[in-house]
């Protein structure tokens, strides 16, 4: 084997903004993120809405906006994923499933977009088959995006990915706006892709859904990855290590629905050291310094506290 299908190491994404005309501000949207995805595996990256986690998807695909820059290492099948390789792979082995209808050209028919400009019998049949497998009839092909319902849009977007025989699928928030049943079905479709041998990187804010379908979970807090663990670790609070992950656990409806006071800091007002420090009950002076990763039995955690310490 030639390593992981996707391996992201120490990825930091910075956004440059101009404030009041001339002052340049760099916003560290994602800091030192590491994640791996293997074949047949679904890994979820969990972060709150609007935290810029879509940029992770864009960085892997090589479609970051001009005012964002990425540092760190991204490897695909063991080899560094250079811009040139991204260009060659994206849309073929490497596919993105975006989040909403705004990612479809409003003036182009669905069929045309699923086929992505390719003509001929072979592609027409493939398009019909793929749409059909998601319960979308041939009449869908002649619809325009504005005529699709939320659930149909999601299935059309997934169809664009499945048309390509992907090896790595990056799903960027594929569920918001769907009712729980539909959302579960959509994630089921991604699960099917892993069964076909692909790796799926799921980027979402929906912890519950992620835990139901993903094998492993990476938790982001204010742009920093605080813990990686497997989904089953969320069955008990004791198997989770980071105080924030534990707070997430306690906030789940079936575990008490208890929310912690305060909110995630805005990237401009990040504290030094651990970003969770101001809200953490166990925080001490050593949390203000650099916090190294520590291996756990299920993954890793970014916290200076050893197990049982308080």
């Amino acid at each position: 084997m030639d390593g992981h299908l996707l391996e992201v190491k120490g990825l930091s994404i910075t956004f440059t903004q101009y404030e009041r005309g001339l002052r340049r501000v760099s916003l560290p949207v994602i800091r030192d993120l590491g994640v791996t995805v293997d074949r047949g595996e679904m890994v979820a990256v969990i972060g709150s809405s609007g935290s810029g986690k879509s940029l992770l998807a864009h960085a892997v695909m090589g479609i970051l906006p001009y005012n964002a820059s990425a540092e760190g290492e991204i490897r695909y099948q063991g080899e560094i994923l250079t811009e040139k390789r991204k260009k060659a792979l994206r849309g073929r082995e490497l596919v993105l499933v975006p989040q909403s209808v705004s990612y479809l050209d409003p003036l182009m028919r669905v069929g045309e977009q699923v086929k992505n400009g390719r003509k001929g019998r072979k592609w027409e049949e493939a398009c019909r088959r793929v749409l059909g497998s998601y319960g979308l009839g041939p009449e869908t092909e002649s619809l325009y995006p504005f005529q699709l319902s939320g659930g149909m849009t999601r299935r059309v977007l997934i169809s664009t990915a499945v048309m390509e025989n992907p090896r790595l699928v990056i799903a960027d928030e594929p569920t918001p706006g769907l009712h729980p049943e539909a959302a579960k079905r959509v994630l089921g479709h991604f699960r099917e892709m892993t069964e076909a041998g692909a790796g799926v990187l799921l980027i979402t804010h929906d912890l519950n859904l992620a835990l139901q379908t993903a094998d492993r979970v990476v938790v982001l807090y204010a742009g920093t990855a605080v813990e990686e663990t497997d989904s089953r670790a969320f069955c008990r609070e004791e198997t989770l290590y980071h105080p924030y992950t534990r707070a997430l656990y306690r906030a789940m409806p079936e575990h008490g629905f208890k929310s912690e006071p305060g909110s995630q800091p805005y990237v401009k007002e990040l504290p030094s050291g651990c970003p969770y420090r101001p809200r953490c009950a166990m925080a001490g002076p050593e949390c203000a310094g650099p916090v190294p990763l520590r291996k756990t039995d299920r993954g890793w955690v970014r916290c200076v506290r050893k197990e049982g310490e308080a």
């Binding site: 695909m61 479609i63 994206r90 849309g91 596919v95 975006p98 705004s102 990612y103």
Partner: peptide, 9 residues
Amino acid sequence: DYVLFARAR
């Protein structure tokens, strides 16, 4: 977004 997606494809 749709041009971004086209690029991604």
